[in-house]
Amino acid sequence: MIMETAVENKYTYKDFESDQEVRWCPGCDDYVILRSMQKALPEMGVKKEDVVFVSGIGCSSRFPYYIDTYGMHTIHGRAPAIASGVKLANPSLSVWVATGDGDAMAIGGNHFIHVLRRNIDLNIILFNNEIYGLTKGQFSPTSTVGQKTKSSPYGNTQPPFNPGELALGAGARFYGRISGNSPKDIGQMLIEAHHFKGTALIEVLQNCVIFNDGCYSNVTSKDVKEDKLIYLEHGKPMIFGKDRDKGLVLNNLKLEVVTIGENGITEADILIHDAKEKDPTMHQMLVRLEYPLSTGIIRSYNDLTLEEREAEVTKQVKANSKFTKADDLFFSGETYKVD
């Protein structure tokens, strides 16, 4: 811990700026996420040479170029698989995946669910803008039904994924959702994800100013945010609203919004958020909730990581094995001599 503190004090966000010019569209939320990451990294207590960013294809996947750590900008959808290889090869690294809704849930859907299932200790930042940006505006797996895009001029007919629902269904141990216009909360969540042992998925509701501008403004714009979003914190009551008078209760196996002070409801009646609960039922309900839209760390269940399980098996095999060198194996068992 002393070592970590020493490292922590060493860097500022400038140490994580690469020499590459950032090329996202002006006003894109991606800038917010990038700066939040650069500011969060010095606080994580990790050496910069131990950090690896891996991405696939899409606007979000340019991310690694802009951070002065090790990085790989790879091929469409494969970042979770490539990052898994990095982490399994060297578990002491802090490995991050930057991905988008198309990259993670369309072309890379298989890798996305399997990395979550395995619980490899890496962190995935999912930039969800409900559109394909780099190919200039086609609907994505999170575009809404009816959404008009270049590939759905009469309205999208494909019902979307809810990324949180998909992730929890795939066994995600850590899932957080955060608005793309709240840099401090993003930064905090990135730090939490880093410290979480296991696959941590952060979905950022990211506005695309060019092809899907305002897709989240009905819930994330400053004037409505407090009433439309609930920011969940482990161990705290599920309360939201400008006046902090709205809360969630369970009624007939469904979440219901109530007003504190009305119909005899007091703060004691409001549900307490338990992100660490193993059973994801409540987390699923929170993820599916449309009003209020839940943000914050919805699930953070501690489980063994794949590397830990592998290390344990390897330890046992090594303890019981008579082989230490390849020659031991090659000359073992049934061999015979020819003179």
Binding site: T74, A81, N110
Partner: peptide
């Protein structure tokens, strides 16, 4: 695809 992709990640990591 994940077979080779993980190998690429591992090669990057040494």
């Amino acid at each position: 695809i994940a077979g080779i992709s993980s190998a690429i990640g591992a090669a990057f990591a040494g």
